[in-house]
């Protein structure tokens, strides 16, 4: 096989077959995929389905890569709805000239992440586009899961306690530093699959009203969306929000608000007050030692928003992320 992806690899002929068989089917091996029929046939109960496309620069970063991200990101969205992720569809759009070794590395990383959560790839697609038509590679994945516990924004209630599963902004800071070629050390993406932790939570039958992973737009996007969609005021105690020292330092350095930076393995929960302590305990046991109570869902409000309280009593809005995130001098 050539060492780079050629347009021929996407043309439906022999090269295309080889690519599918040697890299994708071999990498994602399972009996549904191996039939290589036009469509996969699966049989499950109430479905939760989520799709997302992944493009990241750089492709490989501290703590993960585009492959791990494409598996974790989509299955996390399924998990957040209270569903057990079971199957994944994968579509690759690859730029002509992409190194085959890199593709193999990405597939291997996807396979390993799939294994940790027990999810199978059941169908896929590959397109090769001329050089310059995309930036190296785009991966689209669709996750299919079976509903275990109905978690949704509409279930959020006054008095709910808000918990974040770990330190925020880790992925955003890491990618930002790498992309802007700001040579900083000490940052690592939090990219990981959330299902194992979610499963332990759901098993305990706790009154978890809503969960959302704080991806693009970070913690601030989740909380502002929740406020807006549920029409509730949200109150957050600023110094309760876990942020690692390097991420704080990075944000100080560039004048960036950590609340608006993405996470890829950190989520927010809205939990009934009586189950708050148990939820924290389960999370601490399940690999989220820094999970913390950060605030409360307040009354309904005509202009719902998120209030951030400082530890000396002042209040401000937690702003909704807007515009491109760039370092500022001011």
């Amino acid at each position: 096989m050539a060492d780079r992806i050629l347009l021929a690899h996407g043309s439906g002929g022999l090269e295309n077959q080889c690519l599918i068989r040697d890299i994708f089917v071999a990498g994602f091996e399972n009996h549904i995929l191996s039939t290589m029929d036009d469509a996969a046939v699966v049989n499950i109960g109430t479905l939760a389905v989520s799709t997302d496309s992944y493009t990241v620069d750089p492709l490989f970063f501290s703590g993960g890569d585009i492959g791990k991200l494409a598996v974790a990101g989509t299955t996390n969205d399924v998990s957040m709805r209270g569903a057990r992720p079971l199957y994944l569809t994968v579509a690759f759009i690859i730029e002509e000239g992409f190194e085959i070794d890199l593709l193999k590395k990405i597939v291997a990383s996807m396979a390993s992440e799939l294994q940790t959560i027990g999810v199978q790839v059941i169908t896929g697609d590959t397109k090769v586009v001329p050089k310059g038509a995309v930036d190296k590679i785009i991966i689209n994945t669709t996750g299919i899961g079976e509903l275990v516990c109905d978690c949704a924004v509409s279930h959020i209630q006054t008095g709910d306690q808000l918990i974040v599963s770990g330190p925020i902004a880790e992925h955003g800071a890491c990618i930002f530093a790498a992309r802007e070629e700001i040579s900083v050390h000490g940052l690592r993406s939090d990219c990981r699959s959330l299902w194992p932790g979610i499963e332990s939570l759901l098993n305990k039958k706790l009154h978890i009203h809503a969960m959302r992973d704080a991806t693009r737009g970070g913690l601030s996007a989740v909380l502002n969306e929740w406020a807006e969609q549920s029409h509730h005021l949200i109150h957050i105690v600023e110094n309760q929000v876990p942020i690692s020292t390097p991420v704080s330092g990075f944000c100080e350095m560039l004048g960036i608000d950590p609340f608006t930076l993405a996470c890829e393995g950190t989520f927010v929960l809205s939990v009934a007050e009586q189950d708050c302590q148990s939820t924290l305990e389960v999370l601490h046991q399940a690999g989220y030692p820094h999970a913390a109570l950060i605030g409360t869902v307040m009354e309904k409000h005509a202009h719902p928003h998120v209030i951030l309280q400082s530890d000396y009593g002042t209040e401000r809005l937690m702003e909704y992320p807007s515009g491109e995130i760039l370092p500022r001098i001011c």
Binding site: S310, Y312, G313, T314, E315, R316
Partner: peptide, 8 residues
């Protein structure tokens, strides 16, 4: 504005 110093 960020630290709310005007409130103090």
């Amino acid at each position: 504005v960020k630290y709310g110093l005007d409130q103090l």
